[in-house]
Structures are given as C-alpha cells and as structure tokens.
C-alpha cells in the first residue's frame, strides 16, 4: 500500500472522527451548564469534516496517475 492509499484511508477516518466529534460537541453544548467551548469545538470539527471531504476529492483528482501499491 502506497502513501497515497494510506492517505486516502486516513482522510476517510479523520472525516468520520470530525463528523462524530462535531455532533457530540454540539449535543454537549445544548446540555445543562455546558460552556461555549463545546459550541466552538463542534463548529470547528464540522468545518474540518467538510474541508476534509473537499480536500479528499481534490487529492484523488490530483493523484490519478499515482499507484495505490
């Protein structure tokens, strides 16, 4: 497996983490006594998740000629 293939796997896993963490943080932010930090972290995580998806598509297009092996 080349770095390209491992990077694609990493971006997918990181996107899932950021999405899950974003939802977790926003749900936490609406709970009793929760600070605004959860709101900020949730927002940041969801923005990061979207950015990762856009980046992942761009990366795949740019590295079409590079082997997955």
């Amino acid at each position: 497996m080349s770095l390209k293939a491992f990077h694609v796997v990493f971006v997918v896993v990181a996107t899932l983490l950021m999405t899950g963490f974003g939802v977790w943080s926003l749900r936490h932010a609406t709970g009793d006594g929760a600070g605004t930090s959860y709101l900020v972290m949730g927002g940041l995580a969801l923005v990061a998740a979207i950015a990762l998806v856009v980046y992942g598509v761009w990366f795949l297009k740019k590295t079409k000629g590079v082997s997955y092996l």
């Binding site: 990077h7 990181a14 972290m41 990061a48 990762l52």
Partner: peptide
C-alpha cells in the same frame, strides 16, 4: 478536550503537509 481537539487538528494538518512533501 479543547487542547486535545487542537492536537487532533494539528496532526491531521501535518499528515496533509507530509503527503505534499512526498508529492
């Protein structure tokens, strides 16, 4: 959690720069 979030974002970004170095 805020510090850990910052660290997570830093490591994700560093993976991107690592691939860019290889490219």
């Amino acid at each position: 959690i805020p510090w850990a979030t910052a660290n997570t974002l830093i490591l994700i970004a560093s993976s991107v720069t690592m691939v860019m170095a290889w490219a």
